[in-house]
C-alpha cells in the first residue's frame, strides 16, 4: 500500500501549536480571575486569602500554556525540514 501525501504544513508550526495550547489555559485563567474578582467583591475582608489562591490557580493553569510554549524548542529539532 502506497502512502500518498494529501496535505503538508511547513513553516513555524510551533507557533500554531502554541496558539492551540494557549486556548485552554486562556479560558481557565479568565475563569479564575473572573471568579476571584467576584469573590473579592462579595467578601472584601477575605482579600488576602482569595488573592493567594487566585494566583495559585493562575500559576497551575498557566503551566499548560507554558509547556506548549517550550514544546517547539524541545521537539523542534525532530521536525523534517
Amino acid at each position: 500500500m502506497t502512502m500518498t501525501l494529501l496535505a503538508e504544513l511547513t513553516g513555524s508550526i510551533g507557533s500554531v501549536g502554541y496558539g492551540l495550547a494557549a486556548i485552554g489555559p486562556g479560558i481557565g485563567i479568565g475563569i479564575i480571575f473572573g471568579q476571584g474578582v467576584q469573590a473579592i467583591a462579595r467578601q472584601p475582608e477575605a482579600y488576602g486569602v482569595i488573592r493567594q489562591n487566585m494566583l495559585l490557580g493562575f500559576a497551575l493553569a498557566e503551566a499548560l500554556a507554558l509547556i506548549g510554549f517550550v514544546a517547539p524548542f524541545v521537539f523542534g529539532a525532530t521536525t523534517p525540514t
Binding site: 500559576a59 497551575l60 498557566e62 503551566a63 507554558l66 509547556i67 510554549f69 517550550v70
Partner: peptide
C-alpha cells in the same frame, strides 16, 4: 512545571 513556569515567562 515549577522550573518551566519561571523559565518560559
Amino acid at each position: 512545571t515549577h522550573s518551566v513556569r519561571l523559565f518560559a515567562n
